Simulated scan of single mutants.
Amino acid sequence: MSTKRDYYEILGISKSASGDEIKKAYRKVAMQFHPDRNPGDKSAEEKFKEAAEAYEILSDADKRTQYDRYGHAGVGNGNRGYGGGHMNMDDIFSQFGDIFGDDIFGSFFGGSGGRRGGGQRSRGVRGSNLRVKLKLNFEEIAKGVAKSIKVKKYVSCTTCSGSGAKDKSSIQTCQTCGGSGQVRKVTSTFLGQMQTVTTCPSCNGEGTTITAKCGTCKGEGRAYGEETVTIDIPAGVQEGMQLNVGGRGNAGERGGMPGDLIVLIEEEQHKELQRDGLNVAYDLHISFPDAVFGIQVEVPTIDGKAKIKIPAGTQSGKIFRLKGKGFPAVNSYEKGDQLIHVNVWTPQILSNEEKGIIEKLQESNNFKPNPDKNERSFFDKVKEIFS
């Protein structure tokens, strides 16, 4: 079970909150715990990161749906962007500015823009998300598993460390916007002067320009390659469920944030068991004499073999339950059962001697069907086969 706090609780909102309410709540919490307002306070910094993570999930309709259904297991696997080292404080500050505008930083934090490193944005272009399919067997689903998979994708250029520049001296503050990534224009209208803020056309909002491009990546800051990603799959996932691994998608251009890796779960069919929600179903076939006299049999389960006792006189269609032998729920302590459906096998080929024995047994009332049940007798079925 995850030890992370509930995202709605972090932002102080209800589960029915609208997009505008989520944004307003995030702004309030982030402003309260911003590091510039709480210098040296590690607790405030962690709450600032928590709020950013909560907003990143709840502001995205798909991620929010996964979170509401499966909790933290549906949107992260211990590798999430903020806590897992794939998104640093500069990325969060950049996100904060993108959402609410840089003006609030100038008003509240002395024009620093909430960013480190001389006020330059240096954020590049965010990488795209990737989708992969991951097939799991019943045992892996029941217990949870860590899977390492090779993903072909854009990775950060090792030559320029993702900057896209030949060297550090090739990265210059944009002369058009002065490193802010935005340009302001004041126009006069009949209502008075109006100020508009637009993305800088010279640097496309990055705040920097490159005078000499990296020879390896040609200025993109990334190259197509392969990365091995380890994914922690929680126990109890289901066919069609999506897990979101933050920061493990395509690398961004020129140092931009990486996209996410979205993992689609597929279930391998078990050769003997079938899944029914949290429960596991198994069809057990026994002979007519075993149904009459009773028998102890061994049945397959997710964890191996289990012995069960079939009492004398068991009817075809009887269901036995093995408590707790099913799948666990992803977001609770609930666990399913294994259901064993008994099927009494009717022989299709009989010798003359066997036919004679059965015909004699048919005369006994003990071998006639219960009149309260709409069932045909075993003998009627045999006669139908050999008629």
Rank of each mutant, 00 (worst) to 15 (best):
R254N: 11
R222G: 09
Q269E: 07
P234H: 00
G236F: 01
E268P: 12
G225W: 06
A212I: 00
K218D: 07
S188E: 07
V186S: 10
E268W: 06
I210S: 15
N204T: 05
T196P: 09
T196A: 13
E227T: 07
G255K: 15
T198R: 11
P201Y: 00
G256A: 02
E206H: 09
G236I: 01
P234F: 02
G246L: 12
P201D: 06
R254E: 10
V245E: 00
K218V: 00
M194S: 15
T211W: 02
T230P: 05
G192R: 08
P234Y: 01
A251I: 02
T230Q: 10
G225E: 12
D260K: 11
G236D: 00
C214V: 13
E266N: 15
E227D: 09
K218Y: 01
V237W: 03
G249P: 10
T199C: 10
N204C: 11
N250Y: 11
L261E: 06
T230V: 04
E220A: 08
Q242S: 10
G247H: 07
T208P: 02
N204W: 05
G207W: 06
N204R: 07
G255W: 03
Q242L: 10
V237Q: 04
C200N: 09
E253P: 11
S188L: 02
P258L: 02
I265T: 01
G236Y: 10
G221E: 07
V263F: 01
T196C: 05
I262V: 14
Q242C: 06
D260Y: 11
R222P: 10
T189N: 14
G255M: 09
F190S: 07
P258F: 05
E268Y: 13
T189Y: 07
V263Y: 03
G236S: 01
S202G: 12
N244E: 03
R222C: 07
T216A: 15
M257C: 08
Q195C: 09
S188D: 04
G247M: 04
C217V: 13
L243M: 12
E226R: 03
G221H: 08
L191V: 06
G205K: 11
V237P: 03
E220Q: 15
L261P: 08
I210G: 08
T196G: 13
L191Q: 14
T209A: 13
G256W: 09
E268I: 13
D260H: 13
D232S: 14
Q193Y: 15
E239G: 10
E226W: 15
E266W: 05
Y224H: 11
Q193K: 14
Q193V: 08
C203A: 09
T199N: 15
N244F: 07
V197Y: 00
G221C: 13
Q242F: 06
G207D: 04
E227W: 01
C214I: 06
Y224R: 13
T199Q: 11
